[in-house]
Amino acid sequence: MMTLLSEIGSIILATLRDVVPIAAIIFGFQFFVIRRSIPNLGRVLAGFGYVIVGLGLFLLGLEKALFPIGKLMASQLTDPEFLRSGVDVVATSVRWQDYYWVYLFAFAIGASTTIAEPSLIAVAMKANEVSAGAISVWGLRIAVALGVAIGITLGTFRIVTGAPIHYFIISGYVVVVIQTFFAPKMIVPLAYDSGGVTTSTVTVPLVAALGLGLAETVPGRSPLLDGFGLIAFASLFPIITVMGYAQIAHYRAQRQQPSNKSGSETRLSNPAG
C-alpha cells in the first residue's frame, strides 16, 4: 500500500514537472504582458489540479496495466516460433502473409488506443462545440481511430516487407492533397490537425513496442533503421479518413437535398488562389 502511494506521488510529481513550464509561460504572459487577472482564477487552478492528478493517475494505470501486457503481446505475436506454429514445419522462412495476426493486432490496437486518447477527446469536444454539433464527437473519434488503425497496419506491413518508408508517406501525401480539393472546406483544417493529435500518451508507447518488436524479429531488419516510422503512418492516415468521413457525409446530404448548397463552400472556394 505504501509503495502504491509513493508511486502515485512520484508520477503526479513527474506530471507536475511537465506542466510547470506550460503554467509558467501562461501565467507569466498573463501577469507581465496582459496585466489582467484571470477570471475565475480559483476555478482555473482547480482545473489544472484535476488535469495534473488525472494525467498522473492515467499514466500510472497505463504503466501498471496496459503497457506491460501490450508490449508482451507485441513481442509474442512477432516471435517467429508463434508465426511458424500455423504453417508447415517445412517452411523455414516466414512469408509476409504469415504475419496476419500481427496485422490484425496492429489494426485493433491502433483503433482501440486512439479511442481512449485524451488529446483526441479534447479536440473532438472543441470541434463539436465550434461546429455547433455538425461534427459529432464520436464520428470524429471513430474516423480518426480508423485512420490510425489503417496507418499502423500498413506500417507493420512495411516493416515486414522492408519497403522504403517514403514511398508510402509520399503516396499518402498525394492522396491528402487530392482530397483537400474535393472535401468540404470546413473539415480541412480539422482533418490536418487530427493527424497530430492521435499520437500521444496511449498510442505511442504501444505502437513503438510493436515496431521495435517487429524490426528485431523479422530477418534482415534493423530495429534502429526500421523500428521507426509507425508513428508517421499513424499521423498521416487519419487526415485521409477524416476528410473521407466528411466527404461521405457531405455526399449523402447532397443526394438528399440536391439544391441545398453548403454555406461553407463560398469561402476559400478557389484553392489555386
Binding site: R43, Y50, V51, G54, F58, L66
Partner: peptide, 16 residues
Amino acid sequence: FVVLGLTFFIYGLEMG
C-alpha cells in the same frame, strides 16, 4: 487508475 485519471483529466480540461 486509468478510468479515474481520464475522468479527472476531462473534468479539468473543461475547468482549466
